[in-house]
Measured scan of single mutants.
Amino acid sequence: MQNSHSGVNQLGGVFVNGRPLPDSTRQKIVELAHSGARPCDISRILQVSNGCVSKILGRYYETGSIRPRAIGGSKPRVATPEVVSKIAQYKRECPSIFAWEIRDRLLSEGVCTNDNIPSVSSINRVLRNLASEKQQMGADGMYDKLRMLNGQTGSWGTRPGWYPGTSVPGQPTQDGCQQQEGGGENTNSISSNGEDSDEAQMRLQLKRKLQRNRTSFTQEQIEALEKEFERTHYPDVFARERLAAKIDLPEARIQVWFSNRRAKWRREEKLRNQRRQASNTPSHIPISSSFSTSVYQPIPQPTTPVSSFTSGSMLGRTDTALTNTYSALPPMPSFTMANNLPMQPPVPSQTSSYSCMLPTSPSVNGRSYDTYTPPHMQTHMNSQPMGTSGTTSTGLISPGVSVPVQVPGSEPDMSQYWPRLQ
């Protein structure tokens, strides 16, 4: 039975679970980093996980050691009161100082060594604690504590007292930064006198190289990059290397530039699409467009005044059976039934097929058609009795279509119309 579990990581490298990497692998990681390889490249070359490479390099940059820390136990506290007071002093002298600059000053002034120097995250935590204590304490208590930490007896009751030896409130920041720059020169002199001055200088240079600022491109470089971006948004590694040799930039910087440029292009394309949609959409909808001609068919113009009344309900007709019959029939052209047409008796099958359309009241044959006459024609229609054979009435077949029909004066039988409509 094995005491430890061995495995293979996602890159194909072998590791022992819970145990640190061998010293030979750690040394190779540092050597590759000094030669300029990126952590992701080191991870692929040595088949070590990216997190492990970053952790080893980060500890090497901070402490200069590649040895693993002790497994188990607690780390001794490195942010001692003396170190905290120095950090507060540096922050007062130059409020814009960075944590890694404070760390360098602690090393250069001999406050800490490589073994007990606090990390950048520890210094940031100390600065946050100082800021929170400043908010919790009152103004007087804060000034007393700062005077105690600074070891001075001057008056701290006013704002300019934060910067000793100065009279203009805006000047101390520059003086403090100048003092810090002077301390940086002392850093070089002190570290050069040490035993491991060369190694420390190499480590600091490598650290500065990794902690780079934003790349500033010249106009020629920007023009070359934009020209390549117009050709393709995704250049391959050969195109990037050719462009890197042409404009004297690292291939990694060119790759990052193209990634950022593609993101910018997507944002601009989104804005262009929004403007295009806004320009195509009308600002207001016309009133006429809300009524579609496919839904509402136009009603033909009436030929006679009587045809303006298109349904039985508008003429005072309360018989719903006839109203439904007229509205359900398709529109037909106007025609006239003459008196000489043969009077065919209704076929029983045809009569039964339209039995649902006729009223059940037996008085329908005896009703006159003056009910369908509009009010303004009552006088004219009353002067001509319906009993004469020459009287013409208008029957409504569908809305908007008038059918003048000659009705025999002897017997106005409704059943004569249905064979004609089939």
Rank of each mutant, 00 (worst) to 15 (best):
I87E: 00
L11D: 05
G18P: 03
V126G: 02
I66D: 00
L107A: 15
A37V: 12
V126P: 03
E62G: 06
M148F: 07
M148N: 11
R69A: 06
K145S: 14
I45L: 11
L32K: 03
E133C: 10
Q2V: 14
L149N: 06
C112I: 07
E31H: 07
T25E: 06
E82T: 15
S54I: 03
Q27P: 00
D115S: 14
V84Q: 07
N116G: 08
Y60K: 08
C40N: 05
K86E: 08
Y143M: 13
N129S: 07
L127S: 07
S108H: 12
I97G: 14
L149K: 13
E101M: 15
C52E: 01
E101V: 11
G72D: 01
D140E: 09
P22E: 02
R105Q: 12
L146S: 13
G7M: 12
S132G: 09
G64F: 03
K145L: 10
V111I: 10
N114R: 13
C94T: 13
V53C: 01
G13Y: 03
L130T: 12
V84N: 07
I56D: 00
Q2D: 09
V53K: 01
L149Q: 10
I71D: 01
A70D: 06
R125C: 04
D41P: 00
S24H: 14
R103L: 04
L127M: 04
S4H: 11
R105W: 08
M137C: 15
D104T: 10
D140A: 13
V30M: 05
L11H: 06
P118S: 03
T80S: 05
P81C: 07
K55G: 06
V111M: 09
I123T: 05
D104Y: 08
G141N: 08
W100T: 07
N150P: 13
D115H: 15
G141W: 12
D115Y: 13
G64W: 02
Q47P: 00
E133R: 15
S121Q: 07
N114D: 09
P95R: 15
S6P: 09
G64T: 02
R26E: 01
R77D: 03
Y61C: 08
R26K: 01
L127Q: 07
A99F: 01
S74K: 06
P68D: 00
H5Y: 09
L32F: 09
G7N: 13
N124P: 00
G110R: 11
V78E: 00
S35C: 15
G12Q: 02
V16E: 07
S24L: 10
T113M: 10
I29C: 03
M142G: 14
N124I: 00
Y90D: 04
S119V: 03
M148V: 14
Q136P: 10
S85M: 10
Q89D: 08
I42Y: 02
I102Y: 05
R26Q: 02
K86N: 11
I102V: 04
L127K: 15
S96Q: 08
L32H: 05
Q47A: 13
Y143K: 10
T25Q: 08
T25R: 08
S74C: 03
P68I: 03
Q27D: 03
P22V: 05
S4C: 11
K145Y: 14
I56T: 01
L57P: 00
E133M: 13
K86Y: 12
K134Y: 08
P81E: 09
W100R: 15
N3K: 14
P68V: 00
C52A: 14
Y60L: 01
V111K: 08
T113Q: 13
G141P: 15
C52W: 00
I87K: 01
Q89P: 00
P81D: 07
R67G: 07
V83A: 08
I123K: 03
Q10D: 04
M142F: 15
G110Y: 09
M148G: 12
H5I: 08
F98G: 05
Q10P: 02
F98C: 07
G12M: 03
N116C: 11
S35D: 13
L21V: 04
L21P: 04
P81N: 09
K91E: 06
L106T: 00
Q47M: 08
Y90G: 03
V84K: 11
Y143A: 13
S122N: 04
T25C: 06
K28Y: 05
V78S: 01
P68M: 00
D41Y: 06
A139G: 13
Q89R: 14
S6A: 13
N50P: 15
I87Y: 02
G36H: 05
V16T: 12
L106K: 01
E101Y: 08
S43E: 04
P118A: 08
S54W: 05
D144R: 12
I87C: 07
T113S: 11
S54Y: 08
E31D: 13
R59L: 07
L107K: 15
E133A: 13
K91F: 00
E109Y: 09
S54N: 05
N116I: 09
I29H: 00
M142A: 12
I97L: 10
S65I: 05
P95T: 09
I71N: 13
R38L: 04
V30L: 06
Y61F: 07
E93M: 11
R69F: 07
F15P: 03
A88P: 05
L106C: 08
I87H: 13
Y143D: 10
N17T: 08
W100H: 09
S74R: 10
T80V: 07
Q2Y: 09
S24I: 12
C94K: 09
D115P: 13
S65C: 13
E31F: 06
Q135H: 08
M148A: 14
N116R: 15
T25H: 07
L149D: 15
R128H: 04
N3T: 11
S65G: 04
I45K: 13
S119I: 01
D41F: 04
Q47W: 00
Q2I: 12
G7V: 06
I87F: 03
S122K: 14
S132Y: 11
M137E: 10
Q27F: 10
G12E: 03
S35K: 10
P22Q: 04
S43Y: 02
G141V: 11
A88N: 12
R92V: 12
P118M: 05
V78R: 06
A79D: 04
D104I: 12
H34Y: 12
I87R: 00
